[in-house]
């Protein structure tokens, strides 16, 4: 670790009906670290993600990204630093062409002209989608859309990449292709998932979030080897899978 890229201290958030979503969450993620955030449905994972770039504001506690406090005044810079890839690429890709969508983020940051084109080409190249600039997102396969969704945030040159359920609805080949892309990135990465083998493959460290609290934090292989811990928090490895296989 070369210093904390993300520091979360005492983060609390409750839904409008008063139900707590996050309860005093503390989490440090080091620069360049890849961390999986594991947890069952409704654990508060997506709520946590939405705090990382200021879409949701903490009701108590704080979130810092690269030392910068996430607050309305720092919103633009924080959103540059933290790129979130949402679960459904159809929510993320809304422009008529792939190139326009990948350009959307950096254009919001004021990048234009040749520099903008270069960012688009570079980001698509990283995810293996070079040459698809003119295609409409709805003409791509689901796996391709997921990779383009990753490119739409890579083009903003973020410091922290957050992926919300990156493997949902992907077939095994698309899952593999995405893993190959993510493994090449040297960014600080948070992978929010309940796909435990994927977490094991990509992230040396994991935290388990349940009922709005971080209940475990450690090497992914160790957490996944603790069957009781997993069962307690409604997490399960696929039948026959053993965490010592990698």
């Amino acid at each position: 670790m070369t210093g904390a890229a993300v520091e979360i201290r005492g983060l609390c958030f409750a839904y409008p009906d008063g139900r707590p979503a996050l309860q005093a969450v503390d989490l440090d993620v080091g620069a360049g670290e890849r961390v999986a955030v594991l947890g069952p449905n409704g654990a508060g994972k997506t709520t946590l993600v939405l705090h990382l770039n200021g879409i949701l504001s903490p009701q108590a506690g704080s979130v810092r990204v690269g030392g910068l406090v996430v607050a309305p005044a720092t919103q633009a810079e924080v959103r540059r630093r933290v790129g979130i890839v949402f679960q459904d690429p159809d929510d993320q890709l809304f422009m008529p062409t792939v190139a326009d969508d990948v350009a959307f983020g950096p254009a919001n940051l004021g990048v234009e002209g040749e520099a903008l084109d270069q960012r688009v080409v570079a980001a698509l190249d990283v995810v293996g989608m070079a040459g698809h600039q003119a295609r409409a997102p709805h003409h791509l396969s689901f796996g391709q859309r997921r990779r383009v969704a990753v490119a739409t945030v890579l083009s903003m040159e973020p410091d922290v990449l957050v992926l919300d359920e990156p493997t949902s609805n992907l077939d095994p080949a698309a899952r593999r292709e995405l893993a190959d892309v993510l493994a090449t990135l040297s960014l600080t990465t948070l992978v929010v998932t309940h796909d435990l083998p994927y977490a094991l493959e990509l992230c040396p460290r994991s935290v388990i979030l349940d009922d709005g609290r971080i209940v475990a934090d450690g090497p992914t292989a160790d957490l996944l080897a603790d069957r009781d811990l997993l069962a307690q928090h409604r997490l399960e490895l696929p039948r026959g899978f053993h965490p010592s296989w990698r």
């Binding site: 879409i55 959103r79 790129g83 979130i84 809304f94 959307f104 983020g105 919001n108 903008l116």
Partner: peptide
């Protein structure tokens, strides 16, 4: 929400 996460502030940039 996904637009906000990529820095959208209410006006779409001209891209082409």
């Amino acid at each position: 929400l996904a637009m906000l996460a990529r820095g959208y502030t209410g006006s779409l940039p001209r891209l082409c």
